[in-house]
Design a protein around this nucleic acid. Structure first.
Lengths: 343, 343
DNA sequence: CTGAAAGCGCTAACAA
DNA sequence: TTGTTAGCGCTTTCAG
């Protein structure tokens, strides 16, 4: 290691006290303009960067936000992360990211490492296992510690914190309606591998309600709803062979991909033959010429989530927690309909 | 904030000194077994977690590794990240990630924030802009600071540090050979959007050499090599219309996706009609029934990179730097041929 | 076996 | 306008 540039070393060179240097760098007007300039010049020359650990220890604030996401390979989460970073880093916050790999125990571990001393706030999306088993006790302990927390996408309603979600029910309802009204579909198959996750259930309900509101009976034969992608291997082929089906709705990305690829293996290009709508963030699928994309506006979810965290960090006296909905839009005309609704 | 559990607070309760508590928790045998147990029990009860910032400040070591990747939406990088985390977190290291968005100035900013006080070592993949402009001076300053650094995938040969790469030239050579020998291709089109990146050039050379070695002349008409994806929009259609082409080689993922989707828009299912080989990490493409996948073994690149960092952190007296090659394999038979070669 | 004390680099009262 | 001092939470000599 090179002899590190610290306040002390700068002070020595300039023959002033450490606190003078500290104040100068903080542009404190207790210090004469002249001294401030001398200090700044030298600090610059020596490429001085304050030691974040010392600052944090002293100030009791860390200027870093922890983020826990379930799966980095899902581009939805990658995009949210980009959005988070954009607004957080602009405000001088660092972002440290951990991945729970959809497991509750990993989630607990991540929280434990981050939650004391290390971060000022926690942003997270619940692991699948956590939502399915409804084991939320590890979250309570964060709230008790008064560590600000913002949940996004997969939330736990009872937790006292800010939340950001999609309008999953409405988006699903509208998409199904679009397939019925504009595409003339009557027998719409639904594929989902997020059974058990709350937003998965909402999307399912939106689909069913839209069918009913248009006088179409729900047919369980047309629905694959299993958390296990391997179930798909056996069930998709029979679905695809059912020629009464005249439209598809992929309620999540991996289920959609699995369906399309299985079809390809059977030498059947579903996307070309039938209208397919899907929640989707992969560029691969998004650029697909004929897919009807449900755009979740992941980056904006990141922005909104980060903003809520920032607000909370500034004025945590405010006791009311908000749930913000970022509306998904259907990109069948390449249009963007993003609007926020706070309640 | 709840009154925080610190060494001090535990010491007070137990009526011992802070240092006794500290040593007990460190399982120091200066302290009697009995006392150690009492301390451990209480620490457990109060859910004590040491303040990382204080520890780092005191020890002069941070137990965190900074990672800079160019683009989180590229699943190759996401997978490397997973690999890095797996081995680093097992050794008690935290990982903080920043994204350079392929820009040199962002890269400089990331390095600046991380490089003093904050991290023990830096793992990075160069931004496209950095490689194209060959502006490497910001890296020299890290080396001067004696901060351990490991480069992966897109490296800078002259930098004195450990490196992990794919055998890009050979992988490309072998893939092209496979298309020629096993698939009977003679006129193989190549698409690339990583022109200017060193490994992009290597893959290009591997392709050309394989052609020549099999007595096939390189035809520039068959090659799209532009850093700009929008160029593809104009050039791909004429490529696709050229019926003398009997095989495709996608030298990177986004170029491949763009090509396949453009074909689809033209109602032409290339993948079904012709052999297509591609460097690829997206599950969407990977599961594609008839694609010939060049598997880069991204997760293992992460493992290897992390291991090199760990080694360097332990015994940095060793002066020689190694470049490790993780061999890519061609998954045309769903086989896995991963081997390492260190030179 | 246990404790007192110093100090990592920084900030912020309080003195001068 | 500048400097002195105390202390954030922790580890680690050194003394008892």
């Amino acid at each position: 290691m090179q002899p590190k540039t610290t306040l002390k070393s700068l002070a020595k060179i300039l023959n002033v006290s450490v606190s003078t240097v500290s104040k100068s760098l903080g542009n404190n007007d207790e210090i004469s303009e002249e001294t401030r300039q001398r200090v700044r010049a030298l600090a610059n020359e020596y490429n001085y960067i304050p030691n974040q650990y010392a600052v944090s220890l002293r100030k009791g604030t860390t200027k870093t936000i922890g983020v826990i996401i379930p799966n980095i390979l899902n581009p939805f989460f990658a995009k949210v992360l980009i959005g988070l970073e954009e607004v957080l880093s602009k405000k001088g916050y660092h972002v440290i990211t951990s991945i729970s790999h959809e497991s509750t125990s990993k989630e607990v571990r991540c929280i434990k490492t981050m939650s004391r001393g290390f971060i000022d706030g926690l942003i997270m999306c619940l692991a699948k296992e956590t939502q399915v088993s409804k084991a939320y006790s590890h979250l309570d302990s964060i709230v008790q510690q008064k560590l600000p927390i913002v949940l996004f996408d997969r939330i736990h309603n009872d937790l006292q914190c800010d939340k950001v979600i999609n309008d999953d029910y409405e988006a699903s309802y509208n998409t199904t309606t679009h397939l019925i009204r504009d595409k003339g579909c009557k027998n719409i198959a639904l594929v989902s591998s997020i059974c058990g996750i709350h937003l998965g259930n909402l999307r399912m309900e939106g689909y069913k309600q839209a069918l009913q509101d248009h006088g179409i009976e729900v047919n369980e034969k047309y629905i694959i709803n299993s958390p296990n992608l391997t179930d798909f291997t056996t069930r998709i082929p029979s679905l695809l062979k059912d020629k009464t089906i005249d439209g598809y709705f992929g309620v999540n990305e991996s289920a959609t991909i699995r369906t399309i690829n299985t079809a390809k293996k059977m030498n059947y290009d579903v996307v070309k033959e039938l209208p397919i709508a899907a929640f989707c963030n992969t560029s691969q699928l998004r650029n697909h010429p004929s897919l009807i994309i449900v755009n979740q506006h992941a980056v904006e979810i990141g922005h909104k989530t980060a903003q809520l965290m920032l607000d909370r960090l500034q004025k945590d006296t405010r006791k009311t927690y908000t749930t913000t909905t970022v509306k998904a839009s259907i990109d069948y005309k390449n249009q963007r309909n993003t609007t926020y609704k706070t309640h």
